[in-house]
Lab assay of single mutants.
Amino acid sequence: SIEEEIKKAEEAKEKGKTFIHGDFVATTEELLDELLKRLRKKL
Rank of each mutant, 00 (worst) to 15 (best):
E5I: 15
L31V: 03
D23K: 07
D33S: 09
F19G: 06
L36Y: 01
L31F: 06
K7G: 06
I2Y: 04
E10Y: 08
E30K: 11
S1D: 11
L35F: 01
V25I: 12
K42N: 06
R40V: 10
K7L: 08
K42P: 06
K17C: 14
H21S: 13
K42V: 09
F19Y: 13
E29L: 15
D33V: 09
L32E: 00
L43H: 09
K42A: 14
T28N: 10
K15Y: 11
S1Y: 13
I6S: 03
T27A: 12
E14V: 10
K15A: 13
D23P: 06
K8H: 08
V25G: 04
E14R: 14
K13R: 12
L31I: 07
K13W: 08
G22A: 06
R38Q: 14
K7M: 12
K8P: 01
D23M: 11
T28E: 03
E30M: 08
K7Y: 06
I20V: 12
L35H: 01
E10W: 07
L35S: 00
E5P: 04
K13C: 13
F19V: 05
I20Y: 08
E29D: 10
F24V: 05
E30N: 05
T27N: 15
E30C: 15
R40E: 06
E34R: 07
R40S: 06
A12C: 15
K41D: 15
V25R: 03
R40F: 13
L36F: 01
E30T: 07
E34H: 06
K15P: 01
S1T: 12
K17P: 03
L31W: 06
E3K: 09
E3M: 13
K15G: 09
I20L: 05
D23I: 14
E4W: 11
G16E: 05
E4A: 11
E4D: 12
E4Y: 07
I6W: 02
G16R: 04
T27G: 09
A9S: 01
L39N: 00
E5R: 05
K17F: 15
K8M: 12
R38V: 14
R38M: 15
L36W: 01
T28R: 02
T18F: 12
D23F: 13
D23T: 13
T27D: 15
E34I: 10
R38N: 12
K42W: 15
T27Q: 05
L43F: 08
I6K: 02
A26V: 08
I2H: 02
E29K: 14
E10M: 13
D23V: 12
K13M: 07
L43G: 01
E5G: 04
L32Q: 00
E34M: 08
L31Q: 15
E11N: 04
L39K: 00
T27L: 10
A26H: 02
I6N: 01
E11A: 08
V25N: 09
K17S: 10
T27M: 11
L36T: 00
H21Q: 04
T28Q: 02
L32D: 00
T27F: 14
D23A: 12
K41E: 14
A26C: 09
E14A: 14
E3L: 14
A9K: 02
A12Q: 03
A26L: 07
L36H: 01
L31H: 09
L39S: 00
K37H: 08
V25T: 06
L39F: 02
K15Q: 13
E34F: 09
K37A: 13
I6Q: 04
H21N: 03
E3S: 07
E5M: 15
L31G: 03
E10D: 03
T28F: 12
F24K: 00
L36A: 01
A26W: 10
L36P: 00
G22H: 09
E10K: 08
L31D: 14
E4I: 10
E3P: 05
D33T: 06
A26G: 02
E5Y: 13
T18H: 11
A9Y: 03
E5T: 15
L32C: 00
K13Y: 10
E14K: 13
E30Y: 10
K37P: 00
L31E: 15
H21Y: 15
T27P: 01
L31Y: 04
K13S: 03
T28L: 12
F19I: 04
E3D: 07
E11H: 05
E5Q: 14
I2D: 03
T18A: 13
E5K: 05
G22C: 15
E3F: 11
I6P: 01
I2L: 13
L43I: 04
R40L: 13
I20W: 06
L36G: 00
F19P: 01
F19H: 06
T18P: 13
E11Q: 07
I20T: 10
D33I: 12
E30H: 11
D33C: 12
V25D: 03
R38L: 15
E34Y: 06
D33N: 11
G16S: 05
L36R: 01
E29P: 15
L43C: 14
K17V: 14
S1V: 07
E4H: 07
K17T: 14
E14G: 09
R40W: 13
E11V: 06
K42F: 13
V25E: 08
A12P: 01
L39G: 00
G22Y: 11
D23H: 09
E4V: 06
K7V: 06
L39E: 01
E11I: 07
E4S: 10
K17I: 15
G16Q: 05
F24A: 01
A26K: 02
L39D: 01
L43R: 05
K13L: 11
K37Y: 09
K37M: 12
E3Y: 11
D23C: 14
G16I: 06
E30Q: 09
L35M: 01
E29I: 15
E10Q: 10
T18S: 10
S1R: 12
A9H: 00
K15D: 05
G22W: 13
F24I: 07
A12S: 04
R40A: 08
E10F: 07
K17Y: 15
T27H: 14
A9Q: 02
K37Q: 11
E4Q: 09
G16D: 03
L43E: 02
K8E: 05
A26I: 10
R38C: 15
K8A: 11
